[in-house]
Amino acid sequence: ATVHVKGVTYHFDNPEQAEKFAKRMAKELNGEVHVDGNTWHVD
């Protein structure tokens, strides 16, 4: 799974980790999470 945060890409072997990371980053950055298959975007 892949997480894109403000133009930076993070790779996770575990999709659950990717989801938790994306949601945590969105919270910290006051952003929104969008999911597209195995790819998470934090804007």
Rank of each mutant, 00 (worst) to 15 (best):
residue 26 A to I: 03
residue 1 A to K: 04
residue 25 M to Y: 05
residue 5 V to E: 01
residue 21 F to M: 03
residue 33 V to Q: 03
residue 6 K to M: 15
residue 38 N to P: 05
residue 15 P to H: 11
residue 37 G to K: 06
residue 9 T to M: 11
residue 37 G to I: 03
residue 16 E to S: 10
residue 3 V to G: 00
residue 28 E to F: 07
residue 27 K to G: 07
residue 14 N to L: 09
residue 33 V to T: 06
residue 28 E to L: 10
residue 38 N to I: 07
residue 8 V to Q: 11
residue 14 N to F: 09
residue 13 D to E: 12
residue 14 N to Q: 08
residue 19 E to W: 06
residue 9 T to A: 11
residue 31 G to Q: 06
residue 37 G to L: 04
residue 14 N to Y: 10
residue 1 A to G: 10
residue 36 D to F: 13
residue 35 V to I: 08
residue 35 V to T: 08
residue 41 H to K: 09
residue 6 K to H: 12
residue 18 A to R: 01
residue 10 Y to H: 06
residue 32 E to L: 14
residue 9 T to E: 09
residue 24 R to M: 14
residue 12 F to Y: 03
residue 19 E to Q: 06
residue 17 Q to K: 10
residue 22 A to W: 01
residue 30 N to R: 09
residue 23 K to G: 05
residue 31 G to L: 15
residue 34 H to R: 15
residue 21 F to Y: 06
residue 22 A to R: 01
residue 8 V to K: 13
residue 10 Y to F: 10
residue 38 N to V: 07
residue 2 T to P: 01
residue 15 P to I: 12
residue 11 H to D: 05
residue 31 G to N: 03
residue 16 E to T: 10
residue 38 N to R: 05
residue 25 M to K: 08
residue 10 Y to I: 05
residue 39 T to I: 13
residue 40 W to R: 01
residue 37 G to T: 03
residue 29 L to R: 03
residue 37 G to M: 05
residue 12 F to H: 01
residue 12 F to V: 01
residue 21 F to I: 02
residue 14 N to W: 08
residue 10 Y to T: 03
residue 5 V to S: 03
residue 33 V to I: 14
residue 18 A to Q: 00
residue 18 A to L: 01
residue 32 E to D: 10
residue 30 N to Q: 09
residue 25 M to A: 07
residue 16 E to L: 11
residue 16 E to P: 04
residue 29 L to A: 04
residue 23 K to N: 12
residue 43 D to H: 15
residue 31 G to A: 15
residue 27 K to T: 10
residue 10 Y to A: 02
residue 39 T to K: 11
residue 42 V to T: 02
residue 19 E to A: 09
residue 41 H to M: 11
residue 42 V to L: 04
residue 40 W to L: 05
residue 40 W to E: 01
residue 1 A to Y: 15
residue 10 Y to N: 01
residue 17 Q to Y: 07
residue 32 E to H: 14
residue 27 K to N: 10
residue 43 D to S: 15
residue 32 E to P: 04
residue 24 R to W: 14
residue 34 H to Q: 07
residue 12 F to A: 00
residue 4 H to L: 13
residue 6 K to C: 07
residue 4 H to N: 09
residue 43 D to V: 15
residue 22 A to E: 01
residue 24 R to C: 15
residue 20 K to G: 07
residue 40 W to I: 06
residue 15 P to M: 14
residue 13 D to L: 09
residue 33 V to L: 13
residue 29 L to D: 03
residue 4 H to C: 06
residue 1 A to S: 09
residue 28 E to I: 11
residue 41 H to E: 06
residue 17 Q to V: 11
residue 41 H to W: 15
residue 19 E to H: 05
residue 16 E to I: 11
residue 39 T to D: 10
residue 12 F to G: 00
residue 7 G to F: 04
residue 35 V to Q: 15
residue 36 D to W: 11
residue 42 V to S: 02
residue 27 K to P: 01
residue 24 R to F: 14
residue 26 A to H: 03
residue 43 D to I: 15
residue 26 A to N: 03
residue 31 G to D: 03
residue 13 D to H: 09
residue 30 N to P: 05
residue 16 E to Q: 11
residue 27 K to R: 10
residue 28 E to P: 02
residue 32 E to V: 15
residue 8 V to C: 09
residue 15 P to W: 12
residue 31 G to S: 08
residue 14 N to A: 08
residue 12 F to M: 02
residue 16 E to A: 12
residue 9 T to G: 04
residue 38 N to F: 11
residue 30 N to C: 08
residue 2 T to V: 12
residue 34 H to N: 07
residue 12 F to D: 00
residue 18 A to E: 00
residue 12 F to W: 03
residue 8 V to I: 12
residue 2 T to D: 06
residue 37 G to H: 05
residue 40 W to K: 01
residue 23 K to H: 14
residue 34 H to G: 04
residue 7 G to Q: 05
residue 2 T to S: 10
residue 3 V to D: 00
residue 30 N to G: 14
residue 29 L to E: 03
residue 9 T to N: 06
residue 38 N to K: 06
residue 3 V to Q: 00
residue 42 V to Q: 01
residue 7 G to H: 05
residue 21 F to A: 03
residue 2 T to G: 03
residue 39 T to V: 14
residue 22 A to V: 03
residue 38 N to S: 08
residue 40 W to G: 01
residue 15 P to C: 06
residue 1 A to D: 04
residue 26 A to R: 03
residue 1 A to F: 15
residue 27 K to Y: 13
residue 42 V to A: 02
residue 24 R to G: 07
residue 25 M to W: 09
residue 15 P to K: 11
residue 5 V to G: 02
residue 20 K to M: 12
residue 11 H to N: 08
residue 14 N to D: 14
residue 3 V to W: 00
residue 34 H to S: 11
residue 39 T to G: 10
residue 6 K to D: 14
residue 25 M to S: 04
residue 27 K to H: 12
residue 43 D to Y: 15
residue 11 H to L: 09
residue 6 K to I: 08
residue 31 G to I: 06
residue 38 N to D: 08
residue 1 A to L: 07
residue 20 K to C: 10
residue 21 F to W: 06
residue 12 F to R: 00
residue 3 V to R: 00
residue 6 K to V: 07
residue 27 K to C: 05
residue 30 N to D: 09
residue 23 K to Q: 13
residue 40 W to Y: 13
residue 10 Y to G: 00
residue 40 W to N: 02
residue 10 Y to L: 04
residue 22 A to T: 02
residue 32 E to I: 15
residue 42 V to Y: 02
residue 15 P to T: 10
residue 12 F to Q: 00
residue 33 V to C: 04
residue 25 M to C: 06
residue 5 V to M: 06
residue 21 F to L: 02
residue 10 Y to K: 03
residue 4 H to R: 13
residue 6 K to R: 13
residue 23 K to W: 13
residue 38 N to C: 06
residue 8 V to N: 09
residue 25 M to N: 03
residue 7 G to N: 07
residue 1 A to N: 08
residue 43 D to L: 15
residue 42 V to H: 01
residue 2 T to Y: 13
residue 40 W to P: 02
residue 19 E to C: 05
residue 15 P to F: 12
residue 41 H to P: 01
residue 4 H to Y: 14
residue 5 V to C: 05
residue 37 G to E: 05
residue 19 E to T: 04
residue 42 V to K: 01
residue 35 V to Y: 14
residue 29 L to W: 05
residue 36 D to S: 13
residue 4 H to W: 14
residue 2 T to W: 13
residue 25 M to G: 01
residue 17 Q to M: 12
residue 5 V to P: 00
residue 8 V to W: 09
residue 31 G to W: 08
residue 9 T to L: 11
residue 31 G to F: 09
residue 20 K to P: 03
residue 14 N to V: 07
residue 22 A to N: 00
residue 20 K to T: 11
residue 17 Q to T: 11
residue 20 K to N: 12
residue 8 V to M: 12
residue 35 V to C: 05
residue 30 N to E: 07
residue 14 N to C: 05
residue 21 F to K: 01
residue 38 N to A: 07
residue 23 K to L: 14
residue 21 F to T: 02
